[in-house]
Amino acid sequence: MPSRPSAPSRALVAAALGWLTLVSPAPAEEPLAVTAVTARTETPTARSTLIGEITAPETLQASFPLGGRLTAVRAQVGDHVLKGDELARIEQVQQAQALRAAEAQLSAAEAEHAAAQSAAQRQAQLFERGATTRSDRDSAADRFAAAVALKTQAEATLDQAKQALEDTVLTAPADATVTDRFGEPGQVVGAAQPVLELAVGQGFEATFNVPETVLTASRAAPAEVELSAIDRPGLTVTARVKEISPLVDPARGTVEATVALEENLPGLTYGDPVRGSTTWQDEPGISLPWSAISSGVEGPSVWVVSPEDNTVSERPITIARYSEHRILVEEGIAEGETVVTRGAQLLFPGRKVRIVEAPE
């Protein structure tokens, strides 16, 4: 029967096997398959589409100069009115009564005026003949002067009463289109409280609430906008940017922009929705897809492939701006360098890679 090896012999054999394992060469690491792009300088082109509203170049708010209860509002939103057309009425009972009282006061003043004038003339003639005293003549003259003043006051009161009655009827100050209505019959309105909004003048405009990021995405704001009706996208007109508000809406982060239509869109009027599209180009720069970005220790970074040995290194970058599908790099990448776009999560500095085509 063969003899079993002693314990020291077994220890020597184990040590020899361990040494052989250490000195044996490790199998070569397979290059990691990744997709990549070559950094190129591009001139980014962006297109933005927003929904706005047709507005008037000039609007005014029609109101009564005095307060009262509305008895009628004859104009509806969208109505075309001519200068002098009646738009609304308020109660005129007090004004009508004041007018009748003023007319009666004027009639009494005119009667007193006529009587005082006749008496003054008669006393003047009698005084010339020596048939009356100077005191009577002067008293008649004073009465006539008071009658003249009373008549003048009564005429002014009548004019005010007539104007107050006219003010109970709201009329169109010019040819216009009704764009909004703020009052209904039975409602009590105050003096100068708007009842209707009117669009006056010629032409149309459109207003848009533009996200602030859209306006800051380009160094030069677009000068023209292509407008089209919501239900008829094929029918378009060109509009020019008229005004961009300097204020940002803190709640929505938008800026109001106004464009002026070069010609009217058939079938559209004030208040109708409209689609506005604009295209602009930015300064040339290195553009990369979103998938190329990694999160490095110092911020955004990309993995750059060395052309000599196909190893990768992490490169911090400075991003100038984000777009819908790409990023514009300000610093960190030079034109012609190869940047990994897929597979970056498995990379480490010095890792060999094999570039393959991206799947469809």
Rank of each mutant, 00 (worst) to 15 (best):
S9I: 15
V13D: 00
W19A: 11
L22N: 08
T35E: 07
T35Y: 01
P44A: 09
T49Y: 13
E53V: 14
G67H: 00
R74Q: 14
G78A: 10
D79I: 01
V81Y: 03
A88M: 03
A88K: 08
A88Y: 02
I90S: 06
Q92K: 09
Q94E: 10
Q105D: 09
S107I: 09
A115L: 14
L126D: 05
F127C: 04
F127M: 06
F127A: 09
S139Y: 01
A146P: 03
V148C: 04
A149H: 12
Q153F: 10
E155K: 08
Q160V: 08
A164C: 02
T171L: 08
A176V: 14
T179A: 12
T179S: 13
F182A: 15
E184M: 07
A191D: 02
V195S: 08
V200D: 00
G201Y: 04
F208R: 07
S218R: 05
E226Y: 09
E226S: 15
L227V: 15
S228A: 15
V241I: 15
K242S: 10
E243V: 15
E243G: 05
I244F: 01
I244K: 04
V259W: 12
N264M: 14
L268M: 13
Y270N: 01
P273E: 04
R275W: 05
S277E: 13
P289G: 00
W290P: 00
V297Y: 04
S301T: 00
E308V: 14
E308F: 05
N310Y: 12
S313V: 01
E314R: 11
I317W: 05
I317N: 05
I317H: 05
A320G: 14
R321S: 14
E324G: 06
E324L: 13
I327E: 01
V329H: 05
E330T: 11
E330N: 13
T341H: 00
T341L: 04
R342Q: 13
A344L: 03
L346Q: 12
G350N: 09
K352I: 06
I355H: 00
I355N: 00
E360K: 07
